[in-house]
Simulated scan of single mutants.
Amino acid sequence: MLRSMYAGISGMKGFQSKLDVVGNNIANVSTAGFKKGRVTFQDMMSQTTSAAQGPTANRGGVNAMQVGLGSQTGSIDNLHTQGYRQTTNNPLDLQLEGDGMFVVAEGLEGDESDQIELEDTDTSYTRAGNFYLDTNGNIVNPDGMYLLGFAADDDGNIQNSEDGELNISALNIPQDAQSFSVQTNGVVNYTDADGNNQVAGQVALANFSNPGGLEKAGSNLFRNTPNAGMQGDLVVPENEGTATIVSGALEMSNVDLSEEFTEMITAQRGFQANTRIITTSDEILQELVNLKR
């Protein structure tokens, strides 16, 4: 069989994957916190028909002769560039301006306000900042997962545990609060029933040296992986290179439609070209079969 036919098949498979990724990007062009994907390709191992030879006393060197065997998918990357801002004026719509991700968890008790150990919780990370209040006053995402932050004591100070680390807890705003706000450093303030200003806590962020190494888990969530490079414990916003929080706005998808349409056309033409390779190879085989006639 002709090697060109198998090379064409490998090209078709690769461009099909590219079209799948481009289609997913376009489908999520309006998804809050979505990070677009990108496909890169690599050539397959080539078949060597003649090895390279070094120069001798009587003749010069000769280069190797190789025939490529097609292409393969090199990587499918998640590009964590900043998405555009959409102003909503909803105080629980939080946008991250810079590096870092919100931390959400499930499996907590509804009234849990004491220190939480991250290794004991089902924790996920997200850039989608559309949060809500449940019936108990907890700040949750659309799936009911708790937004984690640093607890505050009765004096409004962020609590430290015995080892000096900040106490992590689910953020809660009392049901009798008259109003609340979120500052750029993540501190959640509210006005109690008596008209006094109180501190509910401070939003916690996770920072990663390689956010592209995070694994998408659906529902705008990411999971930590050994290659994501989570930098130590959770940190407060505007500290250690983490983002500033903008209340009343959402970070939308970083998908550029004009770029995606261009990539879609390129993938479509590449797919068509590889089908033409298979058609041409088939015609050559047909000619060979007909030689006997």
Rank of each mutant, 00 (worst) to 15 (best):
A204P: 07
A64G: 07
G232P: 03
G74P: 04
N220C: 07
Q47N: 11
T266Q: 13
S219E: 14
H80P: 02
A32L: 04
N254V: 10
A206Y: 10
Q53A: 15
M45V: 14
V235Y: 08
A105E: 08
Q115N: 15
S253Q: 05
Q159T: 13
L250A: 09
R269F: 10
Q95N: 13
N274L: 10
L288K: 03
D111C: 00
E260A: 13
P142R: 09
E97A: 15
Y190E: 08
E215R: 12
V22R: 08
S50Y: 07
N227G: 07
S247P: 00
R127K: 14
M44G: 10
M252T: 02
I278N: 00
N89V: 01
N254T: 12
A51G: 09
D153T: 00
R38H: 09
E251S: 02
T191A: 08
S179I: 01
M101N: 08
G98S: 05
T40F: 07
R276E: 13
N224W: 06
N239S: 15
V187C: 03
R269E: 12
S75M: 12
L257P: 13
S50D: 04
D143L: 09
L2E: 05
N141Y: 03
V67M: 12
G232V: 06
A7N: 10
G74K: 07
A170L: 06
R269G: 14
G68T: 04
D134P: 03
S169L: 00
T244M: 01
V140C: 08
F180S: 03
T73Y: 02
S71K: 00
L166T: 10
V255H: 12
E287F: 06
R59T: 01
Q272A: 14
G107N: 07
E251H: 03
K216C: 09
F222N: 14
Q86H: 14
N25K: 04
E287T: 10
T191L: 13
Y132S: 14
F150N: 08
D134H: 02
N141A: 06
G54S: 13
E283C: 00
V236T: 15
T262Y: 01
G74E: 11
N89W: 03
N274G: 08
H80W: 13
N220Q: 15
T184E: 15
N25Q: 05
Y146M: 12
N196Q: 15
D143W: 04
S46I: 00
S258N: 15
A27D: 09
Q268M: 12
G110A: 14
I245R: 02
N197E: 15
G68A: 00
N189R: 11
